[in-house]
Design a binder for these strands. Structure first.
Lengths: 130, 130
DNA sequence: TATTGAACGATAATAATTATTGTTTGTCAA
DNA sequence: TTGACAAACAATAATTATTATCGTTCAATA
């Protein structure tokens, strides 16, 4: 735990909403003007990997288009980032209200299940054994 | 509806999974070797805006970190891209099974509600009136 | 058929992220 | 304490994804 990491963590705890790395960078610069944006990125990734922080919705590097026409949700492996479709019927959402607090009008409900795919589970248990 | 747009649409209909614009570009090049990647991007955006296609999970331009520590989901406005937290209790998920088809082990359930925030609804009805 | 605006291809520009490199710093053992 | 080593750092180059620009082409229509 270095000084930069400590200050980054504390600064982020005081932030709200859904800041980007750039946002964090601008804020933490007030404490450590010499900090590098690369350091911010590296530490945010560390925080996410260690489970201290979460990212809002998984970033797949680039835009991805949905080719499956019928209603479904996604199983996303946090290790290999693979995306698998799962039929909506298998994943029951209790209700899908059209109107939500704050006057928000819902048009679609998308469920992302984050976890580990079978292959990555096996990979990890194999590594543990060795 | 131009020739490129037609071919793009047909080629994409034959694709499966969650292709990126680059994937689509490589594929459609077999039909129109002279096509430009920019054309692919422009048409994919057109398809998404018109509702013919969907994107896998909304892209917020950059990584976003979650600062809200307690369980919640997201209301995402498809017009202004704003993200609002909503307590998990308000959005009941019928069940959150740990084990899913294909041996996937679930660790977290994230619900994104896509729709229109109040401000954008007002904006749109004002435009319609004028 | 001539016009004209939308769409195209090529490519420059921008934004987001990651990799590289040389330097600094903290830790541990001699 | 000092010397060696590894991890982390800042600076910045490089890469990747995406968008904007611009001159040209094409297709609908007047």
């Amino acid at each position: 735990m270095t000084h930069q990491r400590q200050v980054l963590y504390e600064a982020m705890q005081k932030m709200h909403g859904h800041p980007s790395p750039e946002d964090v960078y601008l804020r933490v610069r007030r404490r450590i003007p010499s900090i590098s944006l690369a350091t911010v990125y590296k530490n945010i990734h560390l925080f996410i990997e260690s489970g201290i922080l979460r990212e809002v919705s998984l970033h797949h590097g680039s835009l991805r288009v949905e080719m499956n026409a019928h209603a479904h949700h996604h199983l996303i492996c946090v290790v290999c980032k693979s995306i698998t479709d799962i039929d909506e019927a298998v994943l029951p959402l209790a209700a899908k209200p059209k109107h939500l607090p704050g006057g928000f009008r819902a048009e679609r409900y998308a469920v992302d299940v984050l976890g580990r795919c079978q292959a990555c589970q096996k990979e990890e248990s194999a590594q543990k054994a060795s």
